[in-house]
Design a protein around this nucleic acid. Sequence first.
DNA 1: TACATTGTACTATAAGACTAATACAATAGG
DNA 2: CCTATTGTATTAGTCTTATAGTACAATGTA
Lengths: 144, 144
Amino acid sequence: MAPESDRKPIQFNLDPKSGVPYYKQIILQVEFAIADGRFATGDQLPTVRSLAVDLKINPNTVARAYNELEIRGIVNTQQGTGTFISDKQIKLTEVEREGMLDTLVRPLISKAASYGFAMAEVLDAVRDAYKGIVQNEEEQHDIL
Amino acid sequence: MAPESDRKPIQFNLDPKSGVPYYKQIILQVEFAIADGRFATGDQLPTVRSLAVDLKINPNTVARAYNELEIRGIVNTQQGTGTFISDKQIKLTEVEREGMLDTLVRPLISKAASYGFAMAEVLDAVRDAYKGIVQNEEEQHDIL
DNA sequence: TACATTGTACTATAAGACTAATACAATAGG
DNA sequence: CCTATTGTATTAGTCTTATAGTACAATGTA
C-alpha cells in the first residue's frame, strides 16, 4: 500500500506530567494544528486505534477526544471510514458566533481585569498570539 | 462620607445547577467585582462565616475561595481580622505579567482560531467586554 | 485576662473525571 | 458474503475535586 507516508502525518505527543488530561491534550493539538494550517479541511485524522497505539493509550481516550471535536463541529467522523477535519468549518449563525466568542472572551477579561491588565495589553497579547499562529499559513489571507 | 455600613455590601449568589463549583463562583464574583469597581483596594470582604451563612454553604468552602484569591495576590487575609482586597493590586514583575497574560490568552486564541474567528473579531470582542466592565469606573487608574 | 470574632486544619464522604478492558457495530473493498 | 478496518458502547477501577462537620488557633478589644 502507498499510505500517506509522504505527507507529514502530524506529530502528536502527550505530557503525562502536565496534569492536563490526555483527551484534552489531543483536542488542543488538533485545534492548534487547524489554526496554524497543519490540518486542513478534509484531512483525515489518525485512526482511533493507530493514534492510541502511537501514544500508548487506550483507544477510548482517543475516541473521546474525537467525539468532543465532533460535537463542536470541528471534525466529522464516520464509523468504518475514519475521522476527518470538517468541510464546513463550523456552521454557526451570526448570533451563535457572537455568543460563542463572548463565552470564550468573557472569563479571560474578568481575570485579566482583576489582575490589572489594561485593555491595550490584552489586545497586544491577542495580536501576538495570532501572529504566532499565522506564520505557517499561505492561502488563508482573509479569515475574516 | 459613607462608611462601610451603608455601602452596598455586594450581592453574592450561587447557581448550584451551573456545574461550576461554589468556591470558583465566589472567586469569579470577587474578580469581577474588582474588575468593574464594586470592590476597591482595601475593602473588606464578607467574613468567611457570614458569607457561608448568607449562601447557606460551609465556611470551609468560602475559606477555600478566599485562599485561592490570596494565593493569586488578589486579597490579603489576616486571622482574627478579616479578608481584604489587596492594597498592592498584584505585585508581579514585568516578565511574570507577560507570562500570565500569555497563559490567559493562548487557550482562547487556539480555540477561537480553530472555530474560524478572525483576529479582528476577537479583538472586537475583547474591546466590547472591557467596555462592559469599565462602565462603573470613575477615578480608577486609567486602564489606558 | 476573658471573650467574641476572625481565619485555619483535619477528616470524611459523595460525586465526578479520567482512563482502561473488553466486546460490539458499521463501513469499504475484495 | 467475508473480513479487515473503522468508530462505538458498556463497564469498571482509580484518582481527584468539591463540600461539609468539627475542632483548633490567632487577633482585637473591653
